[in-house]
Nucleic acid binder design. Structure first.
Lengths: 215, 215
DNA sequence: GTGGTTATTGAACGATAGTACAAATAGAAC
DNA sequence: GTTCTATTTGTACTATCGTTCAATAACCAC
């Protein structure tokens, strides 16, 4: 443990109780996400989450007084993670559109359950105005990627909508789509028809994203 | 055993009991849709639907043994209605893309609750393979509209995805978007950048769909 | 150590859920 | 009329829900 020299301030760093509380809180949120992935948002209750996390039911109500608080926290968590992935794609500096395409296609494989959870929680957000900013952050980040390639606000809208719509299509289709095809659709929405979009095909930033040249 | 002595009729036409049953069934489905619109898919129970329909709770279980049956029926109903509206747009023969844009924008106004219900139920469908064909019918019909204007499968995918994504954006945004802007985005996804899409601006098929000429 | 704060637990309450089932009603077939 | 089938209702059972609450354990400040 910590041998308390003079006081450290942030409270959550010094107070072991608060630190443990933060950890517990994170554990419960993770368990909530697992429940959403397995049974859907409708399966989230204080008790089911508690069972999933291996804690008494009263502990989940201690950290999240209402069921809504729990869902808000879960949506925030999954949204944060997606935004983080998008930021990585941007910062890696290579083919951002191709990277986005790979992220979208991942919703057919390993990322399916997570993508499903994000969609369920976002749909839930449509009824809770307070949740809308959180649910919109994925769209905002995709819009930033679009603005790297065009200044046309119409093109930005188009790519954001297409990205979201293709995610939905993949979740509903079940069959794995082609990354190059997804990328081609994104490029189509971005570009005005010229070579505008297909710029940085250069080095292997997102290797594997084989680009289709034919429009 | 059944004595199939005389008539071979549809039964529902001759037998007043079955006819009444069909009517009751439809009433319950409508009530279910109202519950979904008001409280979301999570608010659907045998009892809440029964209260909404003004019938005893046991009657909803008589017609829909499981809760899933009820949701399937509701999704089928709302999906049917949307496909019907799209068919009307196509059959009216005018500016189909503009008509689609108007339908999408309607999700910000009067059609909001219905669009929300459709989205909630469709999201539900992602977990039930048997439901996927039903949830995909809107997309299929939009694809048909796209194919009226292009033979490029990539363009078809793009417009379907964009249409779906813009619906989601509108439900999450809350602010009413511009019909002409939505139409412009759809046209962008369809066209290769040329005048290809903006063909049938002719007579007032869907009056009010003011087209923006500038791409 | 004492005192105060936070985390954690178990038990209980009332409300509501899905489900089952027997009885009652209405219409069809005879 | 009788008989059969389909619809409709009331009721009861069991399970789980959100929520509350008092009591305990862990921890920090002194």
């Amino acid at each position: 443990m910590d041998q308390g020299a003079s006081g450290r301030r942030p409270a959550t760093a010094t107070d072991g109780r608060l630190a443990r509380g933060e950890r517990r809180r994170a554990e419960i949120i993770d368990a909530t996400l697992r429940v959403v992935e397995r049974d859907g948002a409708a399966g989230v209750t204080h008790r089911t989450v508690a069972r999933e996390a291996g804690v008494p039911a009263s502990l989940t109500t201690y950290y999240f007084a209402t069921l809504d608080d729990l869902l808000v926290a879960a949506l925030t968590e999954v949204s944060d993670e997606y935004v983080r992935q998008l930021d990585e794609i941007v910062e890696s500096g290579g083919d951002e559109v191709g990277g986005l395409a790979e992220l979208i296609v991942a919703a057919a494989g390993n990322g399916r359950r997570r993508a499903l959870a994000e969609r369920e929680l976002s749909t839930l957000a449509a009824r809770r105005p307070a949740l809308r900013p959180v649910a919109r952050r994925w769209r905002d980040t995709v819009a930033e990627i679009a603005r790297l390639h065009t200044s046309d606000p119409l093109a930005v809208d188009a790519m954001v909508a297409a990205a979201d719509g293709m995610c939905a299509a993949i979740l509903l289709a079940g069959e794995r789509p082609d990354v190059s095809r997804v990328r081609a659709v994104l490029a189509r929405t971005l570009g005005t028809g010229e070579a505008d979009v297909s710029l940085p095909i250069t080095s292997g930033s997102h290797r594997g994203s084989r680009l289709e040249r034919g429009q």
